[in-house]
Nucleic acid binder design. Structure first.
Ligand SMILES: [Mn+2]
Ligand SMILES: [Mn+2]
Ligand SMILES: [Zn+2]
Ligand SMILES: [Zn+2]
Lengths: 137, 137
DNA sequence: TATTGACTTAGACAAAGTCCAAGTTAGGAT
DNA sequence: ATCCTAACTTGGACTTTGTCTAAGTCAATA
């Protein structure tokens, strides 16, 4: 059983086949699937799984901090299992490919107090945009 | 007539009452309205204006580079008339308020070549997140 | 003021996501 | 091992956000 499922069990989650399959589909690096993509892959392993359950499970994983929601374009949200390692995203404007990146330094340092409008700032999300090797040829 | 309408006229646009109203609604600083918000305000001035025209006009303004599309959350896109002055955004996680901010330095400098995966990078969008003075009380 | 192609409109359609009542089941209790 | 039940899942209705089209309107030129 994956570390994720162990943590979920420890939080009182029932380990249903549906939740196992969603967790399996989200395993890996540079994974940024939409809810419908998660559903399509889950259906391959568990044909009767419903869209509602995929949305429910993804939402619960986000609430628990096990998965990040990433909005890279104006389209569907993407779900990112790499939640325990702070990172930013590099997105191809041609094909939509997404890579995890780790810029140097603290992005908050670039924002002077005079530009903070009295906000208590908690973080910054950076989306680098460009063309991947395939799309720039 | 506003500078924007002059520029549109110079590009061969017909200056319809609908387009004037959309341009008026988008005037101002820190303006980041959704398409439906633009429509609601436009209807106050021109009751018969349709949703389709608001979407069409916003899309045209974006194509012409007169308005920016901003996706700060996973919800509706926001339309930003401050397109001729590069800037980033500070968003309140409580109420959704958005401020334009101007961080120092070049955000691309923080991304080492080893983290670029062969992409030709064209820019970076930064969303600072936090709580506004009202929401942090 | 007549003409006409650009523009606008209402509403159908689509994509992404939420919600609910009814049925199923994981896991603790016996 | 079986029972029990709160937690979970399901299909489908519904909502929000956005796109598209056919038919009607009108801004700009002559
Ligand atoms: Mn990621
Ligand atoms: Mn802005
Ligand atoms: Zn690409
Ligand atoms: Zn606020």
């Amino acid at each position: 059983m994956s570390d994720l499922l162990v943590r979920l069990r420890a939080r009182g989650w029932r380990l249903t086949s549906q939740r196992r399959v969603v967790a399996e589909v989200l395993d890996g690096d540079h994974v940024h699937l939409t809810a419908d993509e998660v559903h399509a892959r889950a259906v391959e392993r568990l044909p009767e799984i419903s869209r509602a359950t995929v949305y429910n499970t993804l939402g619960e994983l986000v609430t628990l901090g096990e998965v990040l929601e990433v909005a890279t374009d104006g389209r569907a949200k993407r779900y990112d299992p790499n939640a325990h390692h702070a990172h930013q995203h590099l997105v191809c404007s041609g094909c939509g490919a997404i890579r995890d990146v780790h810029p140097q330094g603290d992005p908050l340092a670039a924002l002077p107090a005079a530009e903070r409008y009295g906000f208590v700032i908690s973080g910054a999300d950076i989306t680098y945009r460009g063309l991947c090797p395939d799309c720039s040829r």
